[in-house]
C-alpha cells in the first residue's frame, strides 16, 4: 500500500517537474510559435498525469482537445496576427505579489484537505459508490464515466452542447462579419 503510494508519488513528481518547467519556459519565451507548441506539450504531459490518476477518459479527451484542436486553433490565430511578443514595458512586481499572496492562501487552504488517494474521504463516500453499483445493473455500459455522462447526467451534456453551439455561432459572427466587411473595403478600394 505504502510502496504503491511512493511509486505514484515518484511518477507524479517527475511529470509535475516537466509541467512546471514547460510553464516557466512559456512565461519567458517571446516567440509565440514556441509558446503555442509548448502549450501543446503542456496538455500532453497533463494527459499523462491524468492516466496515472486513473482518469483515462479525461486523458484522451485532453490529448485530443487540449494538445490537438487547441494547438490548431492557436496556430490559425498566429497566422492571422503576429509571431513575436513585445517586451513588457512595465515591471511585473504587482502581479508577482498578487500571485504569491493568492498561492500562499491556497496552500494554507490545503492543510484541511483529506490525504491524497484515501478511500474514506467525503468525495469517495457520498454518491459515487451508488453510481458505481447501479451502472452495471441499470445501463449495462461497462464504462462508468460514459454511463454517468450520457445516461444519468444527460441533461448536463445537453447544456454543454448548447454552450459549444453558442460559442460556435459567436466565432462565426465575429470572423464571418469581419470577412464580409473586408471584402467591402476591397471593392471600395478598387472603385
Amino acid at each position: 500500500m505504502s510502496a504503491n503510494l511512493v511509486g505514484i508519488a515518484i511518477i507524479d513528481i517527475l511529470l509535475f517537474t516537466f509541467l512546471v518547467v514547460t510553464a516557466i519556459v512559456i512565461l519567458r519565451l517571446r516567440n509565440l510559435f514556441g509558446v503555442v507548441m509548448l502549450a501543446g506539450v503542456f496538455s500532453l504531459l497533463s494527459a499523462a498525469l491524468f492516466v496515472t490518476l486513473d482518469a483515462v477518459d479525461v486523458a484522451f479527451t485532453e490529448a485530443a482537445v487540449g494538445a490537438g484542436i487547441s494547438t490548431v486553433l492557436m496556430l490559425g490565430t498566429l497566422a492571422l496576427t503576429v509571431r513575436e511578443e513585445k517586451k513588457p514595458s512595465h515591471s511585473a512586481f504587482l502581479p508577482l505579489l498578487v500571485c504569491t499572496i493568492a498561492g500562499a492562501a491556497l496552500l494554507y487552504g490545503t492543510r484541511d484537505m483529506p490525504s491524497f488517494g484515501a478511500p474514506d474521504t467525503p468525495v469517495q463516500t457520498h454518491v459515487a459508490p451508488d453510481y458505481i453499483a447501479r451502472t452495471p445493473v441499470e445501463t449495462g455500459v461497462p464504462n462508468i464515466v460514459t454511463a454517468v455522462l450520457a445516461s444519468y447526467r444527460g441533461y448536463d451534456t445537453l447544456g454543454e452542447t448548447a454552450v459549444i453551439f453558442t460559442a460556435a455561432i459567436a466565432v462565426l459572427l465575429l470572423l464571418g462579419a469581419s470577412g464580409k466587411r473586408r471584402e467591402d473595403k476591397d471593392s471600395e478600394g478598387k472603385e
Binding site: M1, I8, D54, A55, V56, F116, I132, P142
Partner: peptide, 14 residues
Amino acid sequence: ISMGKIIGGTAPIL
C-alpha cells in the same frame, strides 16, 4: 481528478 483517485484503485471501467 486527483481528489477522485483512490490508491490501489483502478480506472472506472467495470
